[in-house]
Amino acid sequence: MASIDFSAEIPQLRSTLSSIEQVTDIDALDAKIADLEKQASAQDLWDDVDNAQKVSSALSHAQSERRRISELDSRIEDLEVMVQLAAEEDDADTLEEAENELVSIHKTLDELEVRTLLSGEYDERDAVITIRAGAGGVDAADFAEMLMRMYLRWAERHGYATKVMDTSHAEEAGLKSVTFEVSAPFAYGTLSVEGGTHRLVRISPFDNQGRRQTSFAAVEVIPLIESTDSIEIPENDLKVDVFRSSGPGGQSVNTTDSAVRMTHLPTGTVVSMQDEKSQIQNRAAALRVMQSRLLLLKKAEEAAERKELAGDVKASWGDQMRSYVLNPYQMVKDLRTDYQEGNPSSVFDGEIDEFIDAGIRWRAEQGKSDS
């Protein structure tokens, strides 16, 4: 096997890191960290718990991003020293260690490079994901639940906080729909490429004749709005219904009418919330998600970019963006990027970073070709 040309690889690593530093704007990042540190040291910080948590989280993420770049610079220097030592002492073990480190640095640089492609207006925001069962009956409802677990496992692998906001269980198995929040830096920009129709092909566990079944689920990803966003909704434009929260099979899990269904009458947009303990909390959560959806709708109408921002997801034939095939062969393939994996089990267990990265790069290329 041909040996690695470190004399070419190391300068390339430095060039890539330099490009990332320019796009990231290190000076601006350092200024942001200094400002957040000043806010975090204020004596009255925890008088407003929500704001304190937001500041602490933002500081932690900014410091982490800065640290990753600084550590990469050090790792490239250490790699160069390692290669020199291996050459001087003709040490095969050190050379192998250097080769492994080169692969690791490339991977980390790739991850940071993808992050630099997230420059949309709302990319830095937390994400709200809604999954709806589409065509395919009970298999589609089961598929919707499988996708929910996939995204929650992905978030868990990365240490991201999640919160299930609303769940509508199907009668036999699975979910009619579910809405949950992912709190992480650039959660919306990262996960927005997952929006669209997902297709599952398998031997149905619900068919007593063991026939192959195709089912669909729609994934919608929207950014969570912040208090600074200007979306005012007149009370007369909202219809609010209250009902009792329920679990699988319609079993009541609440003895009071605490769940909320909010309808925006001019657009027909509907949001349901039943996760919180009280009607007031559910109403506030529903209003926040409603504002997020209407904000996107407003921006889409202004820029004629509705499909790009939220998408018109039909969850049926001819509209799918990714296929999960469990029979007659095993494969998950993204139909936009052509990226595929041969182990659906690992994908459903949350190993979807490669799909997401490929999607972000594909979207960036689409943007270039459209400009």
Rank of each mutant, 00 (worst) to 15 (best):
E97P: 03
E301G: 10
I233A: 11
A140P: 01
G342K: 01
E111P: 06
V325D: 00
Q63C: 08
R157C: 02
D50F: 08
S272Y: 07
G134Q: 05
V138M: 06
A187Y: 09
Y329I: 04
I33Y: 00
L238D: 07
S57Q: 15
D275Y: 12
Q209S: 04
Q281A: 10
E124I: 13
E194N: 02
I352W: 05
E77G: 04
R212A: 05
V138G: 01
S245V: 14
T190A: 07
L59V: 03
S345N: 15
A304G: 08
E89M: 15
R212T: 11
M321N: 11
N51P: 08
F143G: 01
R261F: 04
E96L: 14
S41Q: 07
A133R: 00
Q12W: 06
A42H: 13
L326G: 03
S60P: 00
K32F: 03
K298T: 14
D207I: 03
V325S: 02
L335N: 04
S215E: 01
S18N: 13
S227M: 06
A58D: 10
D126E: 14
Q340I: 03
F186P: 07
E156H: 10
E96K: 15
A310L: 10
D207L: 03
K176D: 08
T337H: 06
A144L: 05
D78Q: 05
H158Y: 11
V128C: 07
E99K: 15
E88I: 10
G367H: 01
Q340E: 09
L112C: 13
L109I: 15
D78C: 06
A144D: 03
D257C: 09
A98Y: 09
R288Y: 05
G350E: 00
T255N: 07
Q43S: 13
W154L: 08
V164F: 13
T255R: 12
M82K: 07
Y324A: 04
L287N: 06
V219F: 00
A218I: 06
A259M: 15
E71L: 13
K314L: 12
L85T: 15
R157A: 06
V270T: 11
R363Y: 00
W154H: 02
A40S: 05
A364L: 01
Y151T: 01
Q291I: 09
E111N: 12
S369E: 06
E111Q: 12
S252N: 14
L152Y: 12
W362Y: 10
A92F: 15
E276P: 10
F186G: 02
K368D: 09
I233Q: 11
E97D: 09
Q39L: 09
E308N: 09
M321G: 12
E305W: 08
F216P: 00
E302A: 13
I280Y: 08
E220N: 03
D50I: 09
N236M: 13
A92R: 13
D357R: 08
S204G: 07
A127Q: 04
R75A: 14
W154T: 03
G350R: 01
P328C: 10
D126P: 12
L326T: 00
A133I: 01
R322P: 05
L295D: 05
W154A: 05
D90Q: 12
F355H: 02
T167E: 14
V201T: 12
T94I: 14
